[in-house]
Design a protein around this nucleic acid. Structure first.
Lengths: 106, 106
DNA sequence: GGTCATTGTTTAAATGTTTAATAGTTCACA
DNA sequence: TGTGAACTATTAAACATTTAAACAATGACC
């Protein structure tokens, strides 16, 4: 596989992190499995919208889903997703702190 | 700060990883600083495009840039960016392997 | 079995965002 | 003043997101 193709696939997986609702879902699923309705209850919004976002995340391989009776349960495909997400959160927090430090100096 | 606001900012930082060229740049800058022209030489494409992507990454706080004379040098703002990026690459590779295993079974 | 409510998924249209390409600008310095 | 290095502005095309409505699958109840 060419490098450029890898970069495309890699970016595609990363894109799945690039939406507030999807970050919220990853946060929710850190250490547990939840069903669609449970997730919807926390995130709010339209069910069709949530369903589409969950479907994107599942297609890109960052979530797993399984159906049990009436309910569909979702979970992270791997702890690596949660770890990566936490690291990026830290990058954000570090930046916010740096920014605050700058403001304080003025 | 409300949770929803955090999710937005967090997603915004993650978005910076969501483009093949930007992944390539992060890969390139894993352990060193490079100037614009060096990066352009590796990635190819238009100067203006690279400049825009680097500017996005810098604004979102995942790159640092410093100007030295005629050249602008870029580096990762933190090793956490490289780590997160590597984790997501592993998620991708794991998925590709799973996919291949499925194919093999048929 | 037939009917009904619950759980999600799918689809399609409207809207919003991102990107690539082009052209033009700024800056440092020889 | 000319040149190379990088940034900025603009715009059209591509892509992602939201919404609402229609649809499918399951299980409960009679």
């Amino acid at each position: 596989m060419t490098d450029k193709k890898i970069f495309e696939l890699h970016a595609d997986v990363c894109k799945a992190l690039g939406h507030p609702l999807r970050i919220e879902v990853i946060d929710l699923l850190q250490d547990k499995e939840l069903c669609f309705t449970d997730i919807l209850e926390v995130t709010g919004g339209l069910k069709s919208n949530l369903s589409q976002h969950l479907s994107v995340m599942t297609k890109k391989g960052i979530l797993k889903s399984r159906r049990d009776g009436q309910c569909t349960y979702f979970s992270l495909s791997s702890k690596k997703v949660a770890q990566a997400c936490r690291l990026m959160r830290e990058v954000l927090i570090d930046n916010l702190k740096k920014h605050q430090t700058l403001i304080d100096k003025l």
